[in-house]
C-alpha cells in the first residue's frame, strides 16, 4: 500500500493549491516506528509529510467533528464508514468534504510484530508489497503482512471506501468467507458465570486512561458520562465495578454506530481487546435490524427510527 503515498501527496498538493480544500487530513510517519500519526496540513508546501502504509491504524474522523472549513481527507474502508456516520449525525456535511478513497488491504498489528521479534526494540519498518521487514539493533526479519493483520482487519469485509470523490487506485477484492463474529459466538455459548469471569479478567488491567474513548470517532460528546459528577454515573477509581460500568457504557454508546475500525484496541496501553464488547452489539444490530454502520448515507440508524416491525421479543 506504500505506493499510494506519492499519489496522496500529489492529490493533496493539488487540492490545497487550487483552494478546493482549506486543510488536508492524513497520516504522517510517527516519531516511533509502527506508530503513524494523524496530521492536518494547510500549507501545500508541506504535503511531503503525508504518508500511507500498513501501519496507519488510527481513525481520522475524530478530526472532522464540527469543523467549519473545507476538508480533504483520506479514507479507507472503515474511515469512510465513519465519515458516513458523522454525516448522518450532523457532525460534518458532505459538501465540506473532499474524500480521497484508499482501497485498503488491512493494517498491521504492531503488538503482534513486537511479539514476533521477541519484544526487541524495532527501529525501522519497510514495506514491500505484501511483505514487510522489521529491523533493529542486530536483527532484521521479514514477515508476511497477511499473518500480522489486526484482528479486525483480518475479518474485514468492507476494505474499499463507501463514499469518495476520487480513488488513489482501483478497488481491492473484498474478503470472502470470513466470519467476523466467530469469537462472539464462542462467548455467547458460555454460561453467565463464565462470561462474567471472562470479561472481568479481560478488563482487569484497565487503567481508565480513556484512550479508547478519545481515539474513537464516535465519542464526541462535549461532556462524557464518565466526567459527569452530578449525578456521578461511574466512579473515577479503578474499582472493578467502575471499570466494568465504564466499558459497558462506552460500548453501548457505540451500538449501531461502531464500524469495527479497531482504533480503540490499537491505542490501549495495556492491550485490552475491548472490541469484544462492541462486536456483540454489531452482531445484534445485524441480526435484529439488518444494519451495518456507515454503509449508506441516506438510511437512518436503527436506534434512531421507529418501525412497527422492530425487534420486540424482549418485551413482555
Amino acid at each position: 500500500m506504500i505506493e499510494y503515498t506519492a499519489i496522496i501527496r500529489d492529490t493533496a498538493k493539488k487540492l490545497l493549491k487550487d483552494g478546493k480544500v482549506d486543510v488536508f487530513i492524513g497520516y504522517k510517519k510517527g516519531t516511533v516506528p509502527m506508530m503513524n500519526e494523524p496530521v492536518v496540513i494547510s500549507d501545500p508546501e508541506k504535503v511531503d509529510t503525508l504518508h500511507w502504509d500498513s501501519l496507519c491504524g488510527l481513525n481520522l474522523c475524530n478530526y472532522l467533528t464540527k469543523r467549519k472549513d473545507k476538508i480533504g481527507i483520506i479514507a479507507n474502508g472503515c474511515n469512510s464508514r465513519n465519515i458516513v456516520t458523522h454525516i448522518l449525525e450532523n457532525q460534518i456535511s458532505r459538501e465540506q468534504l473532499y474524500i480521497v478513497g484508499i482501497p485498503c488491504t488491512g493494517v498491521i498489528d504492531h503488538r503482534a510484530v513486537l511479539r514476533a521479534v521477541g519484544n526487541k526494540e524495532v527501529l525501522d519498518v519497510q514495506e514491500q508489497g505484501d511483505k514487510f521487514t522489521v529491523s533493529g539493533n542486530g536483527f532484521s526479519e521479514t514477515f508476511d503482512k497477511a499473518k500480522f493483520l489486526r484482528t479486525n482487519c483480518a475479518v474485514c469485509t468492507h476494505r474499499n471506501p463507501v463514499i469518495y470523490d476520487e480513488m488513489v487506485a482501483s478497488p481491492v477484492k473484498e474478503q470472502e468467507g470470513v466470519d467476523p463474529f466467530e469469537d462472539v459466538k464462542k462467548i455467547e455459548a458460555m454460561d453467565p458465570e463464565k462470561k462474567w469471569g471472562f470479561f472481568t479478567k479481560m478488563i482487569e488491567r484497565c487503567l481508565r486512561c480513556y484512550a479508547c474513548r478519545n481515539s474513537c470517532p464516535l465519542c464526541y460528546c462535549p461532556t462524557c458520562f464518565v466526567d459527569e459528577s452530578k449525578p456521578q454515573w461511574v466512579g473515577k477509581s479503578i474499582d472493578p465495578t467502575d471499570t466494568m460500568t465504564f466499558h459497558i457504557m462506552r460500548a453501548y454508546h457505540c451500538a449501531g454506530r461502531c464500524t469495527d475500525c479497531g482504533a480503540c484496541e490499537r491505542v490501549c496501553p495495556v492491550g485490552i481487546p475491548m472490541r469484544q464488547f462492541t462486536k456483540k452489539l454489531n452482531k445484534d444490530a445485524l441480526e435484529y435490524f439488518s444494519w451495518e454502520a456507515g454503509l449508506n448515507p441516506d438510511a437512518r440508524p436503527p436506534l434512531d427510527v421507529y418501525k412497527p416491525d422492530d425487534y420486540n421479543d424482549f418485551v413482555k
Binding site: 462472539v184 462470561k195 464488547f277 445484534d284
Partner: peptide
C-alpha cells in the same frame, strides 16, 4: 440491545425485564 450486551457480559437474562 442493552439487555443483549449485559447478558453477553454475564448478567443473567431474567434480571432485566421490559414490558408494555
Amino acid at each position: 440491545m442493552l439487555k443483549g450486551l449485559l447478558e453477553h457480559i454475564g448478567i443473567e437474562p431474567g434480571r432485566l425485564n421490559f414490558s408494555w
